[in-house]
Amino acid sequence: MTDRSTTSPASDLESLSFEEALTELESVVTRLERGDVALEESIALYERGARLRAHCQKKLDEAEERVNRITLGEGGEPKGTVPFDAG
């Protein structure tokens, strides 16, 4: 329970990148599996792990292909984007 990662409130999950969430999830799983944590902590770890997993899953579900092409102005500066078709 002294570990920052396990005490962080649920709200800060949103700011975690996929990799951060995955790394923390792995450490949570490893600690839980080691079995040398107090029962109360085990439950807290489980809850944290479940939230991390949901967060990771959400990030995975956001996988969506969107390909655009930059349009350039006369000075070569980007003006905007148009859908790109590689043909």
């Binding site: 839980l32 079995g35 085990s42 770890l45 479940a50 899953q57 995975l60």
Partner: peptide, 22 residues
């Protein structure tokens, strides 16, 4: 990644169950 996360989910369940059973 999806498989890995699903695996972690399973390990979470098993880990807690094991902790309780112990």
């Amino acid at each position: 990644l999806a498989e890995r996360i699903a695996g972690h989910g399973g390990r979470l369940h098993r880990g807690l169950r094991l902790a309780l059973r112990q």
